[in-house]
Design a protein around this nucleic acid. Structure first.
Lengths: 342, 342
DNA sequence: AACATAAACTTTATCGATAACTAAATATCA
DNA sequence: TGATATTTAGTTATCGATAAAGTTTATGTT
């Protein structure tokens, strides 16, 4: 910038103004500057600019898990929407580890991003308090933290849990197991939904049919496999499994099949998230759809809203989308023939 | 920082020194400062620091595609390795669009990240020239750009293409099709490998058995489906498909099955990337494994190496890993029973 | 002609830190 | 004991921009 100013014999500020389309610059100088800028392939230093203006056009998306495609898909839609409004999105992976998350958040904060979208790992609120103290707007995604009054965009998980479990009940399952997700709002609510559906149907709640993967961290196929092996050892044998997410369900599928049992005849199976590959599995997987596109777009809008109304206090809206049951072969039995699938 | 200095009646520089563990600070002052830092929950402003030092401890990973899990998996290992060395990794998605990539690169550059790891969308080298002109070290990942002498970490794609095609030939396929990937080094090399394997086996090369998805962008299931429908219309009918990646192969699988054909009896199928779900598919998918963990770790090391040797000219190494054939049901026929799978 | 207005720039201060140098107080040693 | 080291802390300049206020010069107004 200095170079440009020197070359053209104008002040640095003039150059700066040209770059920001400031009204008071002559047409002639403006063109001279712009040309030189092009020649030198100059780009303003965002750190310096950010230092003064406090804005960087960056939004960070903090996710606990990348392997399960749910967050990746949402990221895609988020990114598209934010990009359309002039923001850049960066993804930051926390490995479902709240200590890592705390570090990343701190680092991002001091880097000076404009907003954060967080699917939190752990409900330690100190990180959030830190964000608030820095006046950086943020949106909670997928995972709610009750103590915080930040905007939240997510899915009605209690209902998701109920729907999945109720569906298994509808097709005649009596001994339904649940493989738990991480101990955060979606995991807890889906479990709750599972319990309440059982209760409403007058089925007993067996603690040994509720398992949590031994290993922590993001829930993947191998966790589902391991958990299901333990479940299959419980007698009398279960006849249905509702897994927290699709990867867990896929692991469960492998465990069930390799134990020589049939799906859905011996054990019916349903997951949650509706990953694109669910249809293509050995046994197409029933699941609960969460509409990642809608989630992504709505979350982006929530963030953009915060970014616009700089001063005004935000109403801190809570947006909860309705989940949708998708029945495929893994839970299709004679008794009832619900439509859906695809 | 100023506040802390004022409160404790020391200079800002002293505080700064304490924070950086500079040798010349008294034990007493050091402790006083540290305590106040904790009380105020203070974090140094990285923009300001970066402005002076030129370092931010940030590494950006630029990927064209998030849906196919290949890059997500690599990202996980990359992130782990970089984190172990004190760097933070941010993922940036370019939608397989070189214009978007150019923008993101520019934005990241002016943000002042320490290094970039790029799986490029398009071989427009102007972005790379820009990066070089800013003296930001970068590593090319997965996709090579011949004109550039930056370090490269990837897979021997020519061999991958050969292995996959040769395998189909080995099991008796005569009319083998290929669904192309994006027009960059992996796509081109795998196609080349496909051609050379056919040639070596004395099989004719039919141009109408080589298709490219109509729609551009990241290759997904639906692209494989669409491309395969066109392939199936070609007479005499093909008896084998080698798809650029696993999602394409899965799309192909759906198209083949819904056309009433059997896999592998009528059409044998092989993909590339070895996504974790390949095993669990309706018909377990043969594929070429690329060892995402090794790729991630090696790429991270290459980047770290560049970050260390600040001054010295880097040897610009090229690291090409050997792919591995994984045979599963989608290409298992009587004739030969190769082992592998799992 | 005198003054107000506008256009087109320039000056100065600042964002929040660090680097390089300087200064004072204390320690060490012949 | 005086001289040189060593500790510890403070000064000043700078990184690359922007905001706010100031300065010319040209134009219009009555």
């Amino acid at each position: 910038m200095k170079d440009i100013a020197r070359d053209l014999d104008v002040s640095v500020v003039t150059v700066s103004k040209v770059l920001r389309d400031h009204p008071d610059i002559g047409k002639a100088t403006k063109e001279r500057v712009l040309q030189r800028v092009k020649e030198l392939n100059y780009t303003p230093n965002l750190m310096a600019r950010g230092l003064v203006t406090g804005r960087t056009s960056l939004v960070a998306f903090i996710v606990p898990d990348l392997a399960s495609s749910f967050f990746s898909e949402v990221a895609i839609h988020l990114s598209n929407e934010l990009r359309a409004h002039g923001y850049f999105m960066l993804i930051c992976w926390t490995k479902e580890d709240s200590a890592i998350q705390a570090k990343e958040v701190q680092h991002l904060l001091s880097l000076g991003i404009d907003a954060m979208i967080i699917a939190t790992s752990g409900d330690d609120i100190s990180s959030f308090k830190l964000i608030e103290s820095r006046n950086v707007p943020y949106v909670l995604f997928d995972r709610e933290v009750p103590q915080l009054k930040a905007p939240f965009v997510g899915v009605e998980d209690l209902l998701a849990g109920k729907m999945a479990t109720q569906h298994l009940i509808d097709i005649g399952c009596k001994r339904i197991a649940h493989i738990c997700g991480p101990d955060m709002s979606p995991g807890r609510r889906r479990l709750e939904g599972y319990k309440s559906a059982l209760q409403q149907a007058g089925l007993p709640l067996k603690e040994d049919l509720i398992v949590t993967p031994l290993e922590g961290g993001p829930r993947g196929i191998q966790h589902g496999f391991e958990a299901t092996q333990r479940l299959l050892a419980v007698k009398p044998r279960l006849d249905g499994i509702f897994a927290f997410n699709d990867p867990l369900a896929i692991g469960a599928m492998e465990a069930i099949l390799s134990a020589g049992l049939r799906i859905p005849q011996d054990v019916a199976l349903i997951g949650c998230a509706n990953i694109p590959l669910g249809r293509a599995l050995r046994i197409p997987l029933s699941t609960i759809d969460q509409d990642t596109k809608e989630l992504g777009v709505r979350t982006a809008r929530a963030a953009l809203l915060l970014l616009q109304k700089t001063g005004k206090t935000s109403p801190a809206r809570k947006l909860v989308l309705k989940p949708k049951l998708i029945v495929r072969q893994s839970s299709e039995r004679q008794s009832k023939k619900k439509a859906a699938a695809k």
